[in-house]
Nucleic acid binder design. Sequence first.
DNA 1: AAAACGGGGGC
DNA 2: GCCCCAGTTTT
Length: 215
Amino acid sequence: MAIDAVIRGLRRTAPTWNPTALAVIATREGDPFRVLIACILSLRTQDTTTGPASDRLFAEAATPESMLKLTPRRIERLIYPVGFYRTKARVILGICHDLLDRFAGRVPDTIDDLLTLNGVGRKTANLVVTMGYGKPGICVDTHVHRISNRLGYVKTRHPEETEMALRAKLPRRHWIGYNDLLVSFGQNVCTPLSPRCSICPVSSLCRKVGVTKAR
DNA sequence: AAAACGGGGGC
DNA sequence: GCCCCAGTTTT
């Protein structure tokens, strides 16, 4: 499978696509703590309200220490209306506590250390590593997992297997743009149930996995 | 009104 | 593996 051909095809049409949650998080590039918190806010939400929400939160607290001075109620108010705002406020405080407790207030820079934080899974850990620390990382959310299967890249139900497969093909640089391109394609074109196959630049490669009615 | 949607934890 | 979490968006 010529992944490079796929990527080239996607890049041609990408400029007309709507921005993704990843693009919002990427504006925190170089600040691991902000990347981490923005990732938590974006979990299981499809909207772009996480951008303004994290802006409001960071205006009051942009470090673990200052975050812990906020009450859960205050954080809930600041991040509303993102989905799961109560759960996320609790998770954020738990993470901040843990960072001070076990990592001297610093956000870890390895996947394995990040995974020990409660509320951080493989997607978040990869994004912190690439966006926060500029190191190679591949973000496999459900979009990336789905399109990888449809394009015949992988044949698996397990996102972790997709992550390993894509990691082996990761380009030498520009990882943020690469991740965003894949997510963007899944969000804007190769959507879950009725993808917009008529405008898809790589439909000839598609296995149509899970497609009920193509547009 | 109902179904689709999206990461991670706990078991 | 399976179920749960809570709220918005799409059909």
